[in-house]
């Protein structure tokens, strides 16, 4: 069980308020991702849940129990740190067994659980090594192993993939998602990478300056961003935001069109411009278009290989049914 409720939680460091009053519920078994630009308070929020920081006011409840004043060790949560925080002087086995040892579990049970975790995480051959002798991905797995042996009420991940290279990151992303499917335990995952958020989350919490901008499933956020910030943050490449006369045609202050919702043509279209850069990825092609009279750059995605080059004139048509409209305050117009 691992239902986590934040009730009017705030956090200040001295005079600086990092988290203004905030309410949030994470359901049991849910994979929740906190996402936002750096400094948005997402890590602080995670550390508050972990108990590594005291809340300034408000309450944190884990499975209905008030955990606000409980020390981290007694909250039944496990955490995977950005730096992995492995104990360098202990073997992999001892690292993974450490929480069990602290809980005073007997040796046989410790070994059983460590062996099980190691086989799940493909670490069996490395159990007697020191963390210093492992690759980044293996260290990451040891950190996860140390978390799962405790059978915690929830896992907390603090940007766990940010120290891995791109290829490894993709692999670990899948492994963590699989792990979640298998364990069905609550996971809270902090990242600044919206791709990780979109691919892994059941529920995304978008944060900015300690405020929750929007909470919802990845597709909710993609389809109906509540405001300009979420619209710009979720989706890659970024949504094109167009203000002025073109937006006024749609009775909005600003309209947003995702690059993948624009069709291109050499001959005719609603908008036109000159290709500044074209990126050919094979499966898709991205055009960065200037001189449209709409915005500095309009980004367009086309399926497969499309042959426009630098300097070519290009015509574009947005799909009318997926134009997002925002008012003066940047809020979505339904």
């Amino acid at each position: 069980m691992g239902r986590i409720v934040l009730d009017q939680v705030t956090k200040s460091f001295g005079d600086v308020t990092v988290i203004p009053p905030l309410d949030l519920t994470i359901e049991d078994g849910e994979f929740a991702v906190f996402v936002g630009p750096s400094g948005c308070g997402k890590s602080t929020l995670l550390r508050l849940i972990a108990g590594l920081e005291d809340v300034t006011s408000g309450a944190i409840r884990i499975d209905g129990q008030d955990a606000t004043d409980i020390v981290p060790a007694k909250r039944g949560l496990a955490m995977v740190f950005q730096s992995y925080a492995l104990y360098p002087h202990m073997s992999v086995r001892k690292n993974i067994a450490f929480p069990l040892r602290m809980a005073g579990m007997d040796r046989a049970e410790q070994d059983r659980r460590v062996d099980l975790a190691a086989s799940v995480l493909n670490l069996t051959d490395y159990l007697e090594r020191r963390p210093g002798q492992l690759s980044g991905g293996q260290r990451q797995r040891v950190a996860i192993g140390r978390a799962i042996v405790r059978e915690p009420a929830a896992f907390l991940f603090d940007e766990p993939l940010s120290n891995l290279d791109a290829a490894l990151r993709m692999g670990m992303r899948l492994e963590i998602s699989e792990l979640h499917k298998r364990l069905e335990t609550t996971m809270i995952y902090v990242t600044h990478d919206q791709v990780e958020a979109m691919t892994m989350a059941d529920k995304i919490v978008v944060l900015r300056a300690g405020h929750i901008e929007q909470v919802g499933s990845p597709l909710d956020l993609y389809r109906a961003p509540r405001n300009l910030f979420v619209a710009g943050f979720i989706g890659s490449p970024k949504m094109n935001l167009i203000a002025g006369a073109e937006a006024a045609k749609h009775d909005a202050h600003t309209i947003g069109v995702r690059p993948e919702h624009i069709t291109v043509s050499a001959t005719d279209g609603e908008w036109s411009g000159v290709v500044a850069v074209s990126e050919h990825l094979g499966s898709d092609t991205f055009f960065h278009v200037h001189d449209t009279g709409l915005a500095d750059t309009i980004t367009v995605r086309a399926d497969g290989e499309v042959g426009f080059r630098h300097g070519d004139r290009i015509h574009m048509t947005p799909r009318a049914d997926v134009i997002h409209r925002f008012d003066e305050q940047g809020l979505r117009i339904a």
Binding site: P72, F81, Q82, Y87, M90, F98, R146
Partner: peptide
């Protein structure tokens, strides 16, 4: 010594005494 390691120990259930004895001192 990175502070995260001591926090990890705290999360793993180590009290102040264990933290100093098993994690900090060996490192």
């Amino acid at each position: 010594i990175p502070g995260e390691i001591l926090e990890a120990a705290r999360m793993d259930g180590a009290g102040l005494r264990e933290e100093i004895l098993y994690v900090l001192t060996p490192m």
